[in-house]
Computed example of a mutant assay.
Amino acid sequence: MSPLLPRRVLLAALAAPLTIPVAAPAVAAQPSATFLAAWNAFRQGFIRPEGRVVDTGNGGVSHSEGQGWAMFCAERCGDRASFDLLWNWTQHVLQRPQDRLLAWRFQPGAADAVPDRNNAADGDLFVAAALLLAGSRWGEAGYTEVGAAMARDVLRLLVREVAGLTVLLPGVHGFEEVEDVVLNPSYYAFPLVGVLARAVPDPAWLRLARDGLVLLRRARFGRWNLPPDWLALGRNDGALSLPRRWPPRFSYDAVRVPLYLRWAGLEAEPAAQAAMGFWRDHAHRGVPAWADLLSQRVAPYPASAGMRAVAGYVCDGTVPDSDPERSGGGEDYYSAVLKLLILSALSTTP
């Protein structure tokens, strides 16, 4: 049984009264040998002995999302020793003092290693879900309690009603402007909604998922009608635009939009179909690293192995090449973790 909110529930929510299943999260099926091998390679290549996940492509920093992705995969692989190690570092270093959310970045070697205590919603969601699943798997009430507390703070601090839609702020601070609210479509982790909703029953979860799909159906830009990395939602008229603070691209963030949709059984959604069309466009020499949604230019260099693996999974259901040597050596953290998430998706389908 999957921990996901079933596809039929999400789609029915677009037109039906709000209901949320309340059954306990299920223990994952036995992970595949490929998933276990990839997890072991990732653990050896990117997790320090103290439990810190290192972003090797970004100066060796660590992020709450990286900790959350690793914790989720450790639980799906039944690796309690790694899970405990990851969570111990995460809570002791990234825990915000005023709530149960997590600071978004750790900078090794800095005088203040966590200078910005703002959070990142996707990191909070994955850590909370991982804790809830771990509490169920290993009968650890403490994990369940903290995961539920995090889920409640997500609802309390990050969910807003804007222009008739229930939306997820990317962080507590810095995304609510006078005229619009800035969103990150890749933070809508649809596969996790069921885990959080079962632990903390609240109609807001289903509204968030439902309106997230509504946003993604509208938030399509450029020649290929792709979802952007970042999105601005007008407060008064609900108009969607590309915020100026970030490049107007479908790239390293937005690649997770079709990944999460396919994982949740929502590959027929327009955002996933648009990504498939972009990746299958014969005008490209391979899979480009990004597309500019205003100029229609694509990157002059190819996407990473992990991003290409997302394209293969979304388009064809392909199992990624997760050779342990490459995962732990030749490719960087983000490429490797994308492959892990695909393998997790293949192990926990709706």
Rank of each mutant, 00 (worst) to 15 (best):
G330R: 15
L132D: 02
T144G: 10
L168M: 07
R100Y: 14
A271K: 06
W69N: 07
E50H: 14
L14I: 08
V314R: 14
L85K: 15
A113M: 07
L216Y: 02
S136M: 13
P243D: 09
W89H: 06
L341G: 04
E65K: 11
F42G: 03
V178Q: 08
T348W: 09
D122A: 13
A264E: 00
T348E: 02
A274K: 12
V195N: 09
E50Q: 12
V114G: 03
L346E: 01
N58W: 11
R207P: 01
L226A: 06
L240I: 06
D153G: 08
D292Q: 14
S295H: 08
D153W: 11
L206Q: 10
E325Q: 14
V298G: 04
R96E: 15
H282E: 15
R156Q: 09
S322K: 04
D79T: 09
E176I: 15
M150W: 05
A254L: 09
V214I: 12
P6E: 09
G194A: 04
R48M: 02
P170R: 08
S241Y: 04
L169D: 01
W279I: 01
S2N: 01
R100I: 10
S322R: 00
T19Q: 14
Y187I: 05
W279D: 02
I342W: 00
V22S: 14
V178R: 15
P350F: 12
L293G: 01
G142F: 09
N88E: 05
G135N: 04
A151P: 00
G234A: 13
S186I: 12
V53P: 01
A103P: 00
A219R: 00
S304F: 01
S62K: 07
A70G: 04
A111M: 15
G317F: 04
Y313R: 14
A29V: 09
D153I: 12
S347A: 15
A70Q: 08
P227I: 09
Q91V: 13
D211V: 14
L132W: 06
G68N: 05
W87D: 09
R210L: 10
A199S: 09
Y301A: 14
P243L: 15
N118E: 12
G164V: 11
L131G: 08
T166V: 13
A26F: 07
A28Q: 02
L133V: 11
P350M: 12
L206R: 15
A81V: 13
G142C: 05
G238M: 13
P247K: 10
D153E: 10
G238W: 02
A299P: 00
S2K: 08
R245Y: 13
N88F: 08
Q95F: 14
F278W: 06
L338N: 07
L18G: 06
P270Y: 02
C73L: 10
Y333T: 07
E331T: 04
G68Y: 06
G171R: 03
S64I: 08
L85V: 06
A309C: 05
A13L: 08
